[in-house]
């Protein structure tokens, strides 16, 4: 060794005096400081002032909701109810309104969170809902269901979710990344930074981040300009492929003594009904009946909303499939009433 290493190089008594050793120590100190700072920020309400720590799913609606739900659990405990589904859930049910209406009717306080994900389909909804149940142990999952969940159009988001490590971790896969995702906010902030570093992501990130409120709900205001042609038949060739039915079944199978699963038909603009999936009869035959058949077999409730939709005035619709903030109030209060009427209070305590 002495033939190549000059004597002073391995002089351990003095090695700490070298810029190299001091630089490495400073780096370690900076890193520890940064990690601690990130962990403190993420675990306190200060975190709301920063972009949310990412899960690496390349979708900031998902990242924001995950983080806000974790914050809510930190402050109030596990959620009583999780609202899941696509955009019809995301902007259809306001957890605060449900909590208030439910408390008024029963006197019982519940905690709800809206985990609806725009563009979610049955391509990945099963895995996502399973991961949510395993991770956060909600007592009730309200899955807002629409025919679009089954159509063979794979949204970008479904693809992202299918490959998301965050979900895979909860489905049994273990890796160092899983460990870091579950235990280190600093690692998740580093993912946020990496996402932000790609210039194309920045505006998308701001848009998605601003959409989500702290209870996960993303309200829509006013009315969408383009409603499309109401006379036109939408999704005339609708069918429910086996793969998506399996995902649906996966969600239904989550129903247990610990967690009650309820499927809720997403409200839609009533004049659409004659042309929805071809005709009113086809809507029943192709979509409602198979769903009811599967759920009835497992004793799972399916709450239909076509009667409710009739009661929602025209100006309360954002477009033919989505409610605006006024419509949300009606739907949310109705949902709270349904929960109070249909679900024993004991199961939500």
């Amino acid at each position: 060794m002495s033939k190549i290493i000059a004597p002073e190089t391995l002089d351990l008594k003095n090695i700490q005096k070298t810029p190299l050793a001091k630089g490495l120590l400073t780096f370690a100190a900076l890193l520890i400081g940064l990690v601690l700072l990130a962990e403190i920020i993420a675990r306190t309400p200060i975190g709301y002032f920063f972009p949310p720590p990412s899960t690496g799913a390349d979708n900031f609606v998902f990242d924001s909701k995950t983080y806000y739900l974790e914050q809510q659990i930190r402050q109030k405990g596990s959620p009583t109810c999780l609202i899941v589904g696509s955009s019809v859930a995301n902007d259809g049910l306001d957890p605060d309104m449900i909590e208030q209406a439910y408390e008024q009717q029963t006197g019982l306080e519940i905690q709800c969170f809206n985990f609806g994900m725009p563009a979610l389909t049955m391509d990945s909804a099963g895995n996502m809902t399973t991961a949510l149940k395993r991770r956060y142990h909600p007592k009730l999952i309200l899955y807002v269901l629409t025919a679009r969940d089954f159509i063979s159009r794979q949204g970008e988001f479904s693809e992202q979710l299918r490959n998301a490590a965050w979900i895979e971790c909860d489905l049994g896969a273990f890796s160092t990344q899983c460990w870091a995702l579950n235990n280190s906010y600093s690692y998740r902030y580093s993912l946020t930074l990496n996402y932000w570093l790609v210039p194309g992501n920045r505006q998308k990130m701001i848009n998605e981040y601003q959409l989500v409120s702290h209870n996960g709900f993303s309200p829509l205001d006013g009315r969408r300009d383009d409603w499309g042609d109401l006379e036109k038949i939408i999704w005339p060739d609708f069918s429910m492929p086996k793969k998506r039915l399996e995902e649906f079944q996966q969600i239904a199978n989550l129903n247990s003594s610990e967690t009650t699963i309820i499927f809720v038909e997403a409200p839609f603009y009533p004049p659409l009904l004659p042309n929805y999936l071809g005709s009113e009869a086809e809507y029943e035959e192709k979509f409602i009946n198979p769903i009811q058949e599967i759920l009835a077999g497992q004793g799972i409730q399916f709450w239909e909303t076509r009667t409710l939709s009739q009661q929602i005035p025209d100006p309360y619709w954002w477009d033919r499939l989505h409610l605006n903030a006024d419509g949300v109030e009606i739907f949310s209060i109705w949902a709270a009433t349904q929960i109070a009427d249909q679900i024993p209070m004991d199961t939500l305590k």
């Binding site: 630089g23 400073t26 890193l31 790609v198």
Partner: peptide, 23 residues
């Protein structure tokens, strides 16, 4: 200077750690 070297090394390593991502 010695102090500059120390901070430069620490800063460079931190930069590498934070920015060596998907890009």
């Amino acid at each position: 200077k010695q102090a500059t070297k120390i901070w430069a090394l620490a800063g460079a390593l931190l930069l590498l750690l934070l920015l060596a991502g998907k890009m």
